[in-house]
């Protein structure tokens, strides 16, 4: 599903962020990406999300080379990804429904399809009934679940999560992780960047560790 081949990323003013990183993720695999702050986790996720392009090497996503991809094709490839952020990145002036519906509206789904899929996604994260609320009236855990619903509403092939439990207490973290495992079981590839070592150890999935831009294990 995802393949990195000798990927290097150098920023003009910050130096090397990733050095010769190679790994593969199979379809339906779940892995943690870990390492200290500044080890290159965010850079690696940005390369997959096509927010950055690598300086050297190749990145393959779902059989397609996304290393040096044209600006015009990026939106269509991104629709195969579900992105989840530590700070949720919700639109606070819109309802929960509108937030979750955004990827569908963007992809041009019909009105009925949107309503049906948004309800299904909200049901999966147990937020059905809160469609009309605004994000700021929800708790942190609920906001993160809105973010997760938005990430899965488009039935993506891969989910990328950047510190999804960073702002949540242990119980909520475990709950969120349980959701990710459910997605994995239906064939979605999941990559989670986190430094919550305890959580990683407890769940026992594959771990990719970055240190100073190099991949240590995985």
């Amino acid at each position: 599903m995802l393949r990195f081949e000798h990927v290097c990323k150098r920023y003009p003013d910050a130096g090397d962020a990733l050095i010769d990183v190679s790994f593969r993720l199979a379809r339906g695999e779940m892995a943690f990406l870990t390492g200290r702050s500044g080890a290159g986790k965010s850079t690696l996720l940005k390369l997959i999300a096509m927010m950055e392009q690598c300086t050297r090497g190749n990145v393959m996503l779902d059989g397609k080379d996304i290393t040096r991809i044209g600006e015009g094709r990026i939106p269509y490839l991104r629709r195969n990804l579900g992105l989840i952020f530590q700070d949720y990145k919700l639109l606070n002036d819109r309802t929960v429904f509108d937030n979750v519906a955004l990827p569908l509206i963007v992809s041009g789904y019909s009105h009925q399809d949107i309503a049906r899929r948004v309800r299904a996604a909200l049901d999966k994260v147990s937020l059905l009934g809160k469609e009309k609320k605004h994000p700021l009236s929800l708790s942190g855990g609920e906001q993160q679940r809105v973010g997760i619903a938005r990430a899965i509403v488009n039935k993506p092939k891969m989910i990328l999560a950047d510190e999804p439990t960073g702002n949540l207490d242990p119980d909520l973290s475990a709950e969120v992780m349980h959701m990710f495992e459910q997605f994995m079981q239906v064939g979605v590839t999941v990559l989670i960047a986190t430094h919550d070592i305890e959580l990683i150890n407890r769940l026992g999935h594959r771990v990719l560790t970055l240190e100073h831009g190099r991949l240590l294990a995985g």
Binding site: M51, P75, L77, R78, R79, L83, P103, V106, R150, N154
Partner: peptide
């Protein structure tokens, strides 16, 4: 800006 950024991340084209 946030709205534009988030729309981009969920696969919105520039036209959209």
């Amino acid at each position: 800006q946030d709205e534009v950024f988030i729309s981009k991340l969920v696969g919105a084209t520039h036209a959209f």
